[in-house]
Amino acid sequence: MNGQAPLTIAGRELSSRLILGTGGFTNHEVLASALEASGAELCTVALRRLDPAARGSILEVLDAAGVEVLPNTAGCYTARDAIITAQLAREAFETDWIKLEVIGDDRTLLPDAVELVAAAEALVDDGFTVLPYTTDDPILARRLEDVGCAAVMPLGSPIGSGMGIRNPYNISIVAERAKVPVILDAGVGTASDAALAIELGCDAVLCASAISRAHDPTAMARSIRLAVEAGWLARGAGRIPRRHYAEASTPDEGLPVFDTASQ
C-alpha cells in the first residue's frame, strides 16, 4: 500500500503515480535496480536503428520487471516523423499508447506546438492513445485535450535540465483545468520537485534523468517514489494558507506575568 488512489489513463489503472523514463542509465543492471526501487508500472522506451553490436534488449529488462512499455517519439522534429515513429512503435510493441514528442530544436528540446498538435490529432484519428509532451502553456494543453489526447505532459523545465518547476502557476492552472490526467514531464532534478508537482495538482510525474544520472540511481528512484507519495498525501491533507506575518500556534491565554511592577 502506498496511500495513493490509483491513476487511470485511458481506462488503464496504475497504482504508481511515478512513470520511469529509461534514458540515461549506464547499463541495464542499474536500470533494473532503479526500476524496482521506483515502483513504476509504466516505462518509456525509444526506437532507434537496430544495432548489431548491442548487448541485450531493454525489453527483456522491462518484461522481467513486469512493467508496461510506453514508447516515445523522441528525436522527431516534424509531425510526419512523429507519426511514422508512433506507427513503428505500435508495430514493435503491440501497444497503441504513445508518448508524443515533437521538438523544435536540439538545444532547448522544447516542444514545437504547431507540429505537436498536428501530430496529436492525426494519431488520435489513427486510434492511438496519445500522451503528448508539451510546454507549461495551459492553452496548448487545452488544445491537446480538445483533439483527444488521453493525458497531457507539461514540462517543469527543459529535458534533462534538473531545473525543477520554473512556472508553478502555469502548472497548477494546467492541472486545475484539465479533464484528462496531467503528468509533469521533464525538469525534475530531485525528490522535492516531484512532491511539488503533485502538490500543484499534477496526477503523476515522469522522471528519467533525475534518477538515471543521479550518483546513486536506486536511492534517487526510491526518494522520488516517496516524494510522489508524500506530495499526494500533502495535497489531500490540505496545506495551510500562506501569510505575510506570523501566526502563533501557542495560545497567549494563561501566559504567566513576571513583571510585577506593571500589575
Binding site: T44, L50, D51, A54, I58, L59, I159
Partner: peptide, 10 residues
C-alpha cells in the same frame, strides 16, 4: 529500409 528496435529513452 529502416529497421528499428527498442532502446533506452525518455
Amino acid at each position: 529500409i529502416e529497421v528499428v528496435v527498442a532502446v533506452q529513452g525518455g
